[in-house]
Each structure stands twice: as C-alpha cells, then as structure tokens.
C-alpha cells in the first residue's frame, strides 16, 4: 500500500471556491475522513470538515464523494483505487466553509413535528412486532444525506414546500408507534408537503443506515393522507355527516 491517494477537495466559503489537490499516503482500511485528517495534520490545519465519532454513529460527516452523498467516515478509499477522489460539500445546503454546510434548516423543521403523544403512561405493554415496525426508523443518524439527495430540496428549492425524507421517517416513527394517539396526517397533507415526493427512492439509495425510507415510511404515510382526504367513500360519509 505504498501508493498515494490523490484527493481533490473543494475549498472555499459562501463567496465561492474551487477544488484543491492533495497527495496523501495510503494506509490499509483508510476512509476518506482519515485522508482529510492527514491533510489537516500535515498541510492545512484550517481545512474545515465536520466530524464527531468516525464510526458512522453520529452522522456529522456527510459530504459528496465523486458526486455521491456519503458519510466520509464510512467511505473506503480502496473503493476508488486509481481514481482521483473528489470531495465536495453537500450541495443542498448553504456552504459555511470547505466541506461544512449550514444544516440549520433541518433543525427548524424538526421543531414543527408534534412529539409522541402516548395514550397511557409507561411502562407500555408493547410487543416486539409492534416495536419492530418502527425501530428501523430509530436507526436514523440525521446525517441529512437523504435531504441532500432529494431532488425536491436539491433541484427545486423546495425547502419551503417539503420537510424532506428525514422528517417523513421521523413522522412515521410517531405515527406508527403502538401507543401514540397524536394525529400528524393534516401536517403531512399540508405544511410537511408529503405530496411533493414522487417516490424516486433516491433517499433510500443514499441512506447509510439502510432505512427503507420510501417503502416503509413515505408510501405508508402517503396512504394515510390519501385515505383521509381522497378516499371517495370516506368523503361521502364525511359530507353526509356534515363534517
């Protein structure tokens, strides 16, 4: 493994920037984040990259490697043998510096989701089959790679129209919770903008936690919205009942 790695890292800030090349010595099992740390330690200490755990548990180091949204700590350099590894910040969010983007919009969205509203106090009687239905959603590490790749947010400036896949997963987590009595269907139909999603599954493809975002969260939520607002029989009953 004496071969070096050629990195091309986007350096800049909100006023613009460009890719800068670095040569980094290779170590077996090295990930992209290791290479960026090498650059910090040996060449450019001010190279900005957000990271915390380097174990794919925290979701801080999302960026784009050769055009694909990835966790830098989980992306092995030997997957790119012989290639220049191009690292750029997530394109959907405003850049702060280098690979660090301003993801604060996501935190504003999070505040708009009503929390779990349990019908009974704990301890809950809940069986594993009920837990299993939602535990997949609990694996989310909020890396926001799904938000980065979602074309509604990325290409159509849709942050005022759609909460994005991350928050469909969050809403699904509560809506499908066995003890929850909250109702987030009106939110989904309106402010959350679930109808903006046209199920291209790009979010599912980039999820480093392998959450089946589209199949298991978004589609079942769309069914709830359709049942509530567009089911002709229900609509008829609603009209007859004067509601």
């Amino acid at each position: 493994m004496s071969e070096g790695i050629t990195l091309s890292v986007w350096r800049g800030d909100k006023d613009g920037g460009e890719e800068v090349g670095y040569q980094v010595p290779a170590v077996p099992g090295m990930v992209v984040l290791d290479a960026l740390h090498w650059v910090q330690q040996n060449a450019q200490p001010d190279l900005a990259v957000r990271w915390n755990c380097k174990a794919a548990h925290c979701g801080s180091c999302g960026a784009e490697v050769n055009g694909e949204p990835k966790l830098l700590c989980k992306t092995r350099l030997d997957d790119y043998a012989g290639e220049t590894v191009r690292v750029r910040p997530m394109a959907t969010f405003p850049v702060i510096k280098d690979l660090v983007t301003d993801v604060s919009w996501n935190y504003q969205v999070a505040e708009q989701i009503p929390p779990l509203d349990p019908a009974v106090p704990a301890p809950f009687t809940m069986y594993q089959e009920d837990a299993s239905r939602v535990q997949e959603f609990h694996r989310c590490i909020e890396c926001f790679l799904c938000q980065d790749t979602c074309h509604v947010l990325r290409n159509h400036d849709g942050t005022d129209k759609y909460f994005g896949p991350r928050f469909m997963v969050k809403i699904a987590e509560y809506e499908m919770h066995a003890v929850d009595q909250g109702d987030r269907v009106p939110l989904l139909a309106q402010a959350a903008g679930l109808n903006m999603c046209n199920v291209t599954k790009c979010c599912t493809e980039v999820c480093p936690q392998h959450i089946r975002i589209t199949d298991n969260a978004i589609i079942p939520l769309k069914e709830r919205v359709v049942d509530r607002y567009y089911d002709p029989i229900r609509t008829l009953f609603r009209r007859l009942a004067g509601r």
Binding site: F124, T125, H177
Partner: peptide
C-alpha cells in the same frame, strides 16, 4: 419510553 424511545421487548411486552 414515554418520550418516544422504543426499546427491544420481552415476550410479555416489557
């Protein structure tokens, strides 16, 4: 648990 954590369950639902 009341605030939303979903732990693995026993066969008795605990």
């Amino acid at each position: 648990e009341e605030w939303g954590a979903v732990f693995d369950r026993t066969s008795a639902g605990r």
